[in-house]
Design a protein around this nucleic acid. Structure first.
Length: 153
DNA sequence: GCCAACGTTGGC
DNA sequence: GCCAACGTTGGC
């Protein structure tokens, strides 16, 4: 299966690229949106490449790259009443929520900011730019991925 | 901190 | 199944 490309959003206060650079690998838990869940469960596979996007910060933008190292599997934090990602609708027999593992690849020397993305003619179709787009996991095309990686360095 | 846009919930 | 109310997201 051909490699696919994604954009994962996170608030740096929740989990930042620097955290990932330190830990090297992490499970991407806590996604509680059905559209994003379907991507995690069905489409995101080991080897896929991911743009790491930070929202709610200054500036917002893509801060680096990571790589999927484990296909989708049940998000166990949904089973844990102690977790603030707990969801009583989910249980191990019939998990509602999924996650993947990602590993750190690189942090850009300079983030590719939302402003730069908005002003790049090649990136106008990105879901990120669609009005009110709140999806925390979005597919990106190989071309979009390459354009961003090239300008991020 | 504001607020528009969005997804989810729950009463009917 | 509709839709108002509510909570969350995320740019500014």
């Amino acid at each position: 299966m051909a490699k696919k490309y994604w954009l994962f959003k996170s608030e740096p206060e929740a989990y930042s690229i620097d955290n990932l650079a330190k830990e090297r690998k992490v499970f991407w838990d806590g996604v509680r949106n059905y559209q994003a869940r379907n991507f995690l469960r069905d489409e995101i596979k080991s080897g896929d490449q991911v743009l790491f996007y930070h929202s709610n910060t200054e500036p917002t933008g893509v801060f680096g790259i990571c790589e999927v190292v484990k296909d989708g599997y049940p998000d166990h934090t949904a089973f844990d009443p102690e977790s603030h990602h707990f969801d009583p609708k989910s249980n191990p027999q019939n998990p509602a929520w999924f996650m993947v593992d990602i590993k750190f690849v690189k942090k850009f020397s300079k983030p590719v900011t939302l402003d730069e993305i908005k002003s790049n003619a090649k990136l106008q179709n990105m879901k990120l730019l669609q009005r009110g787009s709140r999806l925390s996991i979005q597919p990106v095309t190989k071309e979009e991925f390459n354009v961003i990686v090239t300008s991020g360095k």
